[in-house]
Design a protein around this nucleic acid. Structure first.
Lengths: 113, 113
DNA sequence: GAAAACAATAGACCATTGTCCATGGTTTGG
DNA sequence: CCAAACCATGGACAATGGTCTATTGTTTTC
């Protein structure tokens, strides 16, 4: 599908899709038609964009996501990939803890009001 | 205490402390000495900075924190304050969910490798 | 076959969240 | 008393994550 449709269906703007692609977070196979150089996105980019959006919302940076993409793709060896993913999981869990502690504090504040 | 000591003890740089203060997240009572205009911080700013740091790590923005400060301070009525805090709690919990779902996805990815 | 809609690229622009620097005044230790 | 260390202010700078614009080329549609 073309970028407009992907944008429409994923809820991510064209510009942001191109931005992600420039940064290696998604990939299109281009030059299908030979007369133009429109990007062509396979269906599963929908899924990937959904993940990227959720991950960004969860506080992961672009370069975090690049790490993940690089780890799982290419001929990278499994062990290294596992390590990268494991590290990101730890970071996320730590952040989750952080959030929980802030929530606790705010709930106490609510009580005291 | 003066800004240097607060920075030292809180682990937050002088510049960042001044930045937070410019943005109304903390407050010093200045002009103690009359010959200078050094800021003077009461002890409990340590606690506040700790909270601010944790909250920032949890993904709250400066303006989120301004909202909180404005809500709990001043002659704002209780109900409004409660509403603001409650809203922030909801947002944080949503973010926590987001994180959990990303963690789940990554853990599944680990399995599949 | 012409206008409207869509796509590409490059580069400017924006907000956010600090961080650094220059300048100049104040305090403090030896 | 004087140098080193500290503080203030204002403004420049930087990285991040987009977003917008200008220009140009391609489809689509009436």
């Amino acid at each position: 599908m073309k970028i407009g449709e992907l944008a429409e269906r994923s809820g991510v703007t064209r510009d942001t899709i191109r931005f992600y692609e420039r940064n290696g977070l998604i990939r299109s196979h281009p030059g299908q038609s030979a007369t133009n150089n429109y990007r062509d996105y396979p269906e599963d980019n929908l899924f990937q964009l959904e993940f990227l959006t959720k991950a960004r919302d969860a506080g992961m940076s672009i370069s975090d996501l690049q790490d993940l993409v690089n780890a799982t793709k290419g001929s990278c060896d499994m062990d290294a990939a596992k390590e990268v993913i494991g590290a990101k999981i730890s970071e996320l869990k730590e952040r989750e803890e952080q959030i929980r502690s802030v929530v606790l504090f705010l709930e106490e504040s609510l009580q005291k009001l």
